[in-house]
Design a protein around this nucleic acid. Sequence first.
DNA 1: CTGTTAGCGCATTCAA
DNA 2: TTGAATGCGCTAACAG
Lengths: 338, 338
Amino acid sequence: MKQGQVPTLKEIAKRLKLSTSTVSRALKDHPSIGLVTTMRVKKLAEELNYEPNSRAIFFKQQKTFTIGVVLPSLSEAFFSTAISAIENKANEENYTVILGQSLDDEIRELKILETLKKHRVDGVILSVSKNTTNFDFIESFQKANIPIVFFDCVPDREDVHRIVANLETGMLEAISTFVSCGHNRIALINGPGNLLASKEREEAFIKGLKTNGVKVNKEYIFHTDLSEKGNQEAMLELISLAERPSAIICFSDYVTLDVMKFAKEKGLVINQDIFFISFANFPIWDHIENKPMASIEQFPGKQAEKAAEILFDLVNKGKTETESYIIYPSRLIHLDKP
Amino acid sequence: MKQGQVPTLKEIAKRLKLSTSTVSRALKDHPSIGLVTTMRVKKLAEELNYEPNSRAIFFKQQKTFTIGVVLPSLSEAFFSTAISAIENKANEENYTVILGQSLDDEIRELKILETLKKHRVDGVILSVSKNTTNFDFIESFQKANIPIVFFDCVPDREDVHRIVANLETGMLEAISTFVSCGHNRIALINGPGNLLASKEREEAFIKGLKTNGVKVNKEYIFHTDLSEKGNQEAMLELISLAERPSAIICFSDYVTLDVMKFAKEKGLVINQDIFFISFANFPIWDHIENKPMASIEQFPGKQAEKAAEILFDLVNKGKTETESYIIYPSRLIHLDKP
DNA sequence: CTGTTAGCGCATTCAA
DNA sequence: TTGAATGCGCTAACAG
């Protein structure tokens, strides 16, 4: 079945008794090659189904036309949206996307990054794992001249390119909404404390309460490790409070799913005994009953697209003065009544 | 910032006044190189952060250690599960995964495949777009010596490697379940007629009805193009029938989501007026009220893993007598009562 | 033990 | 108008 080797320039040259350079030129309509020769070459190339070996070309050009994209998990809608946006941009630029899922595991993330470096990708787009604490790889990529653009979950340092959502805008809208519905016992189930995003949520939460004249009650702020168990525990603590909150803002829609389920098991009625708003805007809320009142959209597509844009600026034009910190406001999306 | 070029063998050789081959050997502990030299080389390599350029190595070896994976859409849980499995297998084999989403668009799918071929991937795993009718690319990949392994949505021809779920087993279980609950007006909302999987579902459906002694009523079989509109139309027709079915088997969980929503809008109560079972086993059913009675699991992870396994057999060992048609039984998963 | 050479597929500079 | 030679980074066969 071995299909006789894939044709090369050399092969064509040999058959036509020409030099590879002539063939190479003929194939790209170089003006200095005679019409007849050009035709002969093209004809044979056609017959042999010749296709230039991009790997060889890239090798010569010292580029791979490949970017790496490392995300925590594709099963989250947020990230599948993001990768689609990146893929589209990459296609436009005739780039190819190598994918890696960190599964929020720092070791795994690092291993993927190493592989990408080994494969000499031209650049990397990275949404950092929720458990990553060591960012030494940034230096190592700098040394290797491989630009990295971070989005969504980004390191807390200023010397890197970052695209994030401003979580404050959405948070403020969320609190205003709750308050205008008469809630004043508003809780936050936040993500892991080490995350920049968690800090931002908390700050925005407190600011929002103050702005709306609601007393800040530290008892109403909980953290979860994002596991189902962690989510349930946070919720259990919340509903065990003497003054049970009537409204809860959750770190993400996935937390909300767990938490709502747990609340129901405990006999609470969603959107009656207790109200939710969460981050991410899960696409199938519309198909679900007892969904949150609203969801805070962080525009993963937009973030990722911008990340790709900046990366290609860096890669193609070698720009170094590209914008390096871009913030998109998040926005509250009201979900229709079921 | 240009970090002085990435170090190469040549660079090390020059600095140490050695030949590149000596350096190359020293770096891989070739026994014929003197201990001293080896040490010196390793030391400098370390200092310079030398990393072998895999692209050059691959180029020489005429391999890319890269496989292409083309899927309809990452946002479907089925496929995000699949790609995770593939990624893991690929990692084990020190392969890298280039991703492409066809979005069920034949043109786009073809373009992705062309790109992969241009990039000279060592192999491809493909779950065909639901709208693909032209399979000429198979020949073109054969000519290029790039093996393709299909899974889940596969072409209806025998000369290719395919991994699929046997839809019959799950379908039979589904019908038995319905029948044992007293249903005898059972409908099928099937996918597009051109799909092999649709044909199989229909055959299995009819067989299942017969086996269970239920009269086959062609009026109860509908097709949808899988758009929300198409799904709703199918449902509308079904519930407009004089003898409205009491149980419906749906092509996929996504169809079911649409259809259940529509049914509710029409005043029907799920799991009371009308019951559902669907294919795919959507992971968050457990968080949803009014979910289907059961879901038919097609084991995307298993399918994809096997696809990867076979592909690597083909790629690494050049095996040509690998199993070429593998079928995993699908299975009914009962969903807990809410 | 170490160096020289050739070659992977292609583009390109320099010569003819 | 065409060809020969070179090199991208690395490995390996062949010489010393």
